[in-house]
């Protein structure tokens, strides 16, 4: 059966899975921003925490998803089966690029600019919001972009824990050795990743302040 015929016959199911996939990616990346950006900022203020925190975020990335799900199933609130567990795993996977780039983006601001700001009498908050975040924005956005694109791909594993998404087709296809099914899941996920990459790349070019 050709892919187009498959989509035509299962249009409603496909749209449902695409919506589920987008939901998983949107919620998990937004949570990862909300957690990762402040964490990256804290690291610029507490350099001693940098190694343990980045190390831990690195470890999360290397844990295979099935093993991570295995750990998460017994946990109350964030665990179990379904979307919440998948989102927790996706957040953990997305954290490293966001934390690391937030830290690098801010740490990369010219020390003379920071000294001038402090010497002019800016508070730490003013320095952060008016100088460090705007100047580090490009690097931070690059991290956000990586995290989002990676999340679109890794969200396919949500299907392993009953959270749906495009991974459903991939898992089904693998189970019954049906390449059309695998492609039916993989292709829209890949297109979604490309679209996210393109859009965020555009945002990066439009919004980020660029040094000479």
């Amino acid at each position: 059966m050709s892919l187009l015929a498959f989509y035509a016959r299962n249009a409603q199911e496909v749209l449902g899975l695409v919506a589920q996939h987008l939901y998983l990616v949107a919620v998990s990346t937004l949570l990862a921003f909300a957690l990762g950006i402040p964490l990256g900022i804290v690291l610029t203020r507490r350099p001693a925490w940098q190694r343990p925190v980045l190390g831990l975020a690195n470890v999360f990335q290397t844990v295979p998803s099935l093993a991570l799900f295995g750990f998460l199933i017994p946990l109350p609130f964030i665990g179990g089966i379904g979307a919440s567990t998948a989102i927790v795993a996706l957040v953990l996977y997305a954290l490293l690029p966001i934390v690391r780039n937030t830290y690098t983006g801010i740490a990369g601001v010219d020390p003379a600019v920071r000294e001038a700001g402090r010497g002019m009498g800016m508070t730490d908050w003013q320095l952060l919001t008016q100088v460090e975040l705007p100047l580090g924005f490009g690097v931070i956005l690059a991290g956000v972009r990586v995290a989002t694109v990676v999340s679109v791909g890794t969200a396919t594993i949500a299907a392993a824990i009953g959270a749906g998404g495009l991974g459903v087709y991939i898992f089904r296809g693998v189970a019954v050795v049906d390449d059309t099914l695998i492609l039916a899941g993989a292709l829209p996920a890949a297109l979604m990743a490309l679209a996210a990459d393109g859009l965020l790349g555009l945002a990066e070019r439009r919004l980020a302040w660029r040094g000479k």
């Binding site: 010219d110 003379a112 600019v113 920071r114 000294e115 001038a116 700001g117 402090r118 010497g119 002019m120 009498g121 008016q130 100088v131 705007p134 100047l135 302040w209 040094g211």
Partner: peptide, 17 residues
């Protein structure tokens, strides 16, 4: 205190944005 003291450094430190 710092807002009442002008401060000029060699690298100038103008905010590029």
């Amino acid at each position: 205190l710092r807002r009442r003291i002008g401060y000029v450094i060699q690298e100038v430190g103008l905010f590029p944005h």
